Amino acid sequence: MADTFTIDPVRTAVLSMDCQAGIVSIYTRENKDTFLVRVANVLNHARTIGMTIIHIQVGFRPGHPEISSRNAVLGAIKSSEQHQRLFQDPLGAIPEPIAPHADEIVITKHRISAFAGTDLAMILRAKDIDTLVLYGIATSGVVLSTLTEATDADHRVVVIGDCCADLDSALHDCLVQRFFPTRGPVFSSEGFIAASPRTNEQRTDTQS
């Protein structure tokens, strides 16, 4: 599928999801620097060719009124000051190498999916976006949840597999290798950059 998948940068958005300092440190313990380099390369390429970039981050009001104690995943945050610090500065900030540029959209979410309770769908409609490039942490969390909602909303989806991370490596591999490809192509960061349209300036640099 990846060989025949074409991308129109004007109608494509890159969703950089939950790549906050504390989360990145936990999920990419042994390869944090290389993970950030891969993500930065994808973002910089997307900026160069004119894709919309949307940064998704997790955040809550004081007292965490958005979280129900019945929520099996998020309830742990409300009951643990240690977990809460992950979503407060400095741990809650997006690391400098992959931080939003001034003109880029930042959406704060309170659930697993980037769509749940946010204005993401409205922004995509307003910008006439039909293709989403997805990556983030965790593979079995925000990436999986956002992908399933996106495909149900008739968006075309692409996943950057080596820009995703999960504490369960077997589950990560299963999703990236078996489930995600049933919904859209899965690229490596280098493969995505190579497969994406290039500007005239990039073509000249490559040929020189």
Results as ranks from 00 to 15, higher is better:
His55Ser: 12
His55Gln: 12
Ile56Arg: 06
Gln57Pro: 01
Val58Cys: 04
Val58Thr: 09
Gly59Glu: 10
Gly59Trp: 06
Phe60Pro: 03
Pro62Ile: 05
Pro62Phe: 06
Pro62Val: 06
Gly63His: 08
His64Gln: 13
His64Tyr: 15
Glu66Ile: 11
Glu66Ser: 10
Glu66Arg: 07
Ile67Asp: 01
Ser68Pro: 04
Ser68Thr: 13
Val73Gly: 07
Val73His: 12
Leu74Thr: 09
Leu74Ala: 11
Gly75Ile: 13
Gly75Met: 10
Ala76Gln: 14
Ile77Asp: 01
Ser80His: 10
Glu81Cys: 15
Glu81Pro: 14
His83Lys: 11
His83Phe: 13
Gln84Cys: 06
Leu86Glu: 04
Phe87Val: 05
Gln88Leu: 15
Asp89Leu: 15
Asp89Ile: 14
Leu91Cys: 14
Gly92Tyr: 04
Gly92Asn: 02
Ala93Trp: 08
Ile94Asn: 04
Ile94Arg: 05
Ile94Met: 05
Ile94Gln: 07
Glu96Leu: 13
Glu96Val: 13
Ala99Lys: 09
Ile105Met: 09
Ile105Pro: 03
Val106Ser: 06
Thr108Pro: 01
Lys109His: 12
Arg111Gln: 09
Arg111Lys: 15
Ile112His: 03
Ser113Tyr: 13
Ser113Gln: 08
Ala114Ile: 03
Phe115Val: 02
Phe115Ala: 01
Ala116Asn: 13
Ala116Cys: 15
Gly117Arg: 03
Gly117Lys: 08
Thr118Pro: 08
Thr118Gly: 08
Leu124Gly: 02
Leu124Asn: 00
Arg125Asn: 10
Ala126Cys: 11
Ala126Leu: 06
Lys127Trp: 04
Lys127Ser: 09
Lys127Cys: 06
Asp128Asn: 15
Leu132Gln: 00
Val133Lys: 00
Ile137Cys: 04
Ala138Phe: 02
Ala138Trp: 01
Thr139Ser: 10
Thr139Trp: 02
Gly141Glu: 04
Val142Asp: 05
Val143Cys: 10
Ser145Gln: 13
Ser145Tyr: 10
Leu147Arg: 00
Glu149Leu: 04
Ala150Arg: 07
Thr151Cys: 13
Asp154Ile: 03
Val157Phe: 01
Val157Ser: 03
Val159Pro: 08
Val159Met: 01
Gly161Ala: 09
Asp162Phe: 07
Asp162Met: 10
Cys163Glu: 03
Cys164Gly: 05
Asp166His: 02
Ser169Cys: 11
Ser169Arg: 15
Ser169Ile: 11
Ala170Gln: 12
Ala170Trp: 03
Asp173Val: 07
Leu175Trp: 09
Val176Arg: 01
Gln177Asn: 11
Gln177Arg: 13
Arg178Cys: 14
Pro181Leu: 08
Pro181His: 06
Thr182Cys: 12
Thr182Trp: 12
Gly184Cys: 12
Gly184His: 10
Pro185Asp: 02
Pro185Cys: 12
Val186Lys: 03
Ser189Arg: 07
Glu190Tyr: 07
Glu190Lys: 13
Glu190Val: 02
Gly191Asp: 09
Ile193Asp: 02
Ala194Glu: 15
Ala195Lys: 05
Pro197Ser: 04
Asn200Leu: 15
Glu201Lys: 10
